[in-house]
Simulated assay, not measured.
Amino acid sequence: MSQSEAPLCLPPKPLGALPRLPDGACDSHFHVFEAGAPLASPRSYTPQILTIADWQLYAEAAGIARGVLVQPSVYGLDNSVMLRAIASDPQRLRGIAVVAPDISAEALRELDAAGVRGIRINTRNKAGVALDAVGELLGKVAALGWSVQFQVRAEQLADVAALEHGETPLVLDHLGFIRFGEADTGTRLDALRHLLDRPNIYTKISAPYRLTASADYTDVGAAITALAASHPHRLLWGSDWPHTELWDKMPEDGDLLSAYETWLPDAQVRRQIFVDTPTSLFFGR
């Protein structure tokens, strides 16, 4: 598949001085890649090869203690790059895998032993697992205490709301991909708030650059501040490093981290979002 069909992402900007996150902070959403690993075809993008060693440099600069790798769509159902990354630092890392609906219980147990703590449903990218697979997968992952993570379009929040998930944690990537500054933004935010009212539903307050045309993400930041006031126990932070699917503008990591300091001024709330909630969800064992 040519890069014109699946364009090459921009690389992240060189690391400068970064604000330090709360002690014990967890990056709940990042991706890594590996030279020579087969890429899915078709796919939505071609990644820069940024490895777990590259993320570790970012983590060291920001004071990140732990991380949760999320299987990127470009590897389809082949979780091996992610699993090798976890194996390089198994005390510090966990993973969110992409699996087929008919995966066996034995295969899931093997992933669990390797540090996987959830599965990903992705309706926004080619090579992702569709929403209609959830019904078959929920019972399988519930037995392991895993979460189900959703990269869905904002109009699919109602579909997530309709799921019968018992006590299985459901996690929405990137504020449910609500587009800020559009006519339906308020309605979508209300739908997200209603979801967060339920036990065991969470959202990542990550990737503001994907959600708005505002250069400084002011509208996204205002929503994050409001959600932190109403639902602090339902929020997770993730870097979305290395910021895939960007082709014309790349954010500065320092600017992003500084923005969260502004949006989340309360130290106790910041600790809940950056440390306590991800520790509970992903590092209980």
Rank of each mutant, 00 (worst) to 15 (best):
L8P: 02
L10V: 06
L10E: 06
P11E: 07
P12C: 08
K13M: 08
P19C: 07
P19E: 01
R20V: 02
G24Q: 05
C26H: 11
D27Y: 03
H31P: 05
A35L: 02
T51R: 09
W55P: 00
L57R: 13
L57W: 00
E60H: 13
V68D: 04
V70P: 10
V70S: 08
A87V: 07
S88D: 13
R94Q: 05
I96F: 12
D102S: 09
I103F: 08
I103V: 15
E110L: 13
R124S: 12
K126V: 02
A127S: 15
L131P: 12
A133E: 01
V134T: 13
L138C: 10
L138G: 07
A142L: 09
Q156V: 04
D159R: 11
H165F: 05
L172N: 04
R193K: 14
L195S: 10
T203C: 13
P208S: 06
T212S: 15
D216N: 15
V220M: 07
T225E: 11
W237Q: 10
P242M: 06
E245Q: 15
D248Q: 13
P251L: 01
P251I: 04
P251K: 06
D253L: 06
E261C: 03
Q268T: 12
R271H: 15
I273C: 14
V275G: 10
S280K: 13
L281I: 02
F282S: 03
